[in-house]
């Protein structure tokens, strides 16, 4: 088997740092200044929010702004560098989170969220955002 790429360790470290900085920033914005979350998304980003697909930065921001105010507390955070062949040379990472969220007037519940982040000119943007309530993931067929 081919040995892992020599620089993979550095990439993983970079991914971890990006993920940590990103998750701190993202949930701060999501909970407290959602109106300003816009610039974290790539122009052609995709959001799948509990099965609802939303395309494009503007549509995503509109969708998120219509959600009730939230309070999020993470329990888990992990990240991986994605092989470059997948994203045409751009530095890309997968960020996976799990935690507790309380939307106003709703019960507190667990959720999973998976981001794909891509770096362009040293600015990280969300390319893909996938959000699922833990409960909704059980037998929530269409």
């Amino acid at each position: 088997m081919a040995p892992p790429e020599p620089e993979l360790k550095d990439k993983a470290e970079q991914a971890d740092q990006a993920a940590k900085a990103f998750s701190d920033l993202y949930y701060e914005y999501f909970d407290k200044k959602r109106h300003a979350i816009k610039n974290l998304y790539h122009d052609s980003a995709n959001l799948i929010w509990n099965g609802r697909a939303v395309s494009g930065k503007d549509a995503i921001v509109k969708f998120l702004e219509e959600l009730p105010t939230s309070y999020t507390n993470l329990s888990s955070l992990d990240s991986q560098p994605v092989t470059e062949s997948a994203f045409e040379g751009q530095t890309t990472v997968v960020v996976s989170t799990f935690g507790l969220v309380k939307y106003q007037d709703n019960k507190t519940q667990s959720f999973y969220q998976t981001f794909i982040l891509s770096s362009q000119a040293n600015v990280w943007k969300i390319v893909s955002d996938n959000y699922r309530f833990l409960e909704a993931s059980s037998g929530a067929g269409t």
């Binding site: 509990n50 099965g51 009730p68 105010t69 699922r132 309530f133």
Partner: peptide, 16 residues
């Protein structure tokens, strides 16, 4: 304004 914000109902799998 606050009272109108609701969490959208979850939908099933999304495959594109």
């Amino acid at each position: 304004d606050v009272s109108t914000a609701v969490v959208p109902v979850s939908q099933g799998s999304y495959f594109v």
